[in-house]
């Protein structure tokens, strides 16, 4: 379980996150949505331990982040964070990189090699597996970064915009299916950010909607529909939650003009 209690995060003077309280249950796929600059990546960064919040605590499976060396080590073995833009070792081949990552997470070598082959095949990188990463396109690099996160077999996955960065339709499909299966059958906990409501609708168990650094809503899609009294798509729900004034004004505007 991931628990955030009263999180406030600043980089400078302006707070990016304010008083965030959030509890993600084990075996749940949660997506953080919201417009650009509302703190999606910052919230994920706080969960991932990249950022140290000015107030509040983050707890993962009972261990508080950065509280002690032992607690942080325990969290790092369980939780993998993948930023929007990973920096890959460009002079190594994809296979070398993936094997290195697997060894870092103490995965049995036979299992690791088989898993590497399957991931390379899944993301259509089998042929390029022994090429140096510098020769990869940006979409292939994104696939490789995703493969590295999946390879760790960590029970907690924190993925920042995993569906962006030039991922092709087959990559999108593969990632969606793998994440859903990880959650449903292996009990993994996945938290990811995405700006694309259609994708979120498809995969999310619950959705966090961020607005101005606070949680505007955190519920299932059905729950959000009830909350906003909007039976439509997530995009429409977001419109109501994020820009209620604009929606109201648009409705006013579209009324028949007097003849």
């Amino acid at each position: 379980m991931i628990e955030l209690v009263n999180i406030t995060q600043h980089y400078g003077v302006r707070p990016v996150l304010r008083g965030i309280n959030l509890r993600v249950k084990p075996g749940e796929l949660v997506v953080i949505v919201g417009p650009n600059g509302m703190g999606k990546t910052t919230l994920l960064g706080v969960m991932a331990g990249v950022l140290q919040p000015q107030h509040g605590v983050v707890t993962i499976d009972g261990h508080q982040r950065r509280q002690s060396v032992a607690a942080e080590l325990a969290i790092r073995k369980k939780a993998v964070y993948l930023p929007d833009q990973a920096w890959l070792p460009t002079q190594r081949t994809a296979r070398e990189f993936l094997l290195g990552v697997g060894q870092l997470y103490d995965i049995d070598m036979d299992r690791l090699m088989e898993h590497v082959n399957r991931l390379l095949s899944l993301f259509e990188l089998s042929e390029q597996g022994d090429w140096v990463i510098s020769s990869y396109s940006s979409g292939q690099k994104k696939k490789l970064a995703l493969a590295s996160a999946l390879l760790t077999e960590a029970p907690v996955l924190l993925l920042d915009e995993p569906f962006s960065g030039g991922l092709d339709p087959s990559g999108l499909l593969a990632l969606k299916r793998v994440l859903k299966r990880r959650v449903a059958e292996q009990g993994a906990t996945v938290v990811l950010t995405s700006p694309v409501p259609e994708l979120v609708e498809e995969i999310a168990d619950r959705i966090v909607i961020l607005r101005n650094g606070t949680i505007a809503a955190f519920d299932t899609l059905e729950g959000l529909r009830r909350l906003t009294e909007c039976p439509g798509s997530l995009a429409e729900i977001l419109e109501r939650l994020m820009f209620p004034e604009t929606t109201k004004k648009l409705q006013e505007y579209f009324k028949e003009l007097p003849t």
Partner: peptide, 22 residues
């Protein structure tokens, strides 16, 4: 490059070098 594979050599980039199990 690529002719002398060895799995756990050198850096693994970001984020694994900084956020993976140390």
């Amino acid at each position: 490059a690529g002719q002398n594979p060895g799995p756990n050599q050198g850096t693994l980039g970001w984020p694994f070098d900084h956020l993976g199990p140390p």
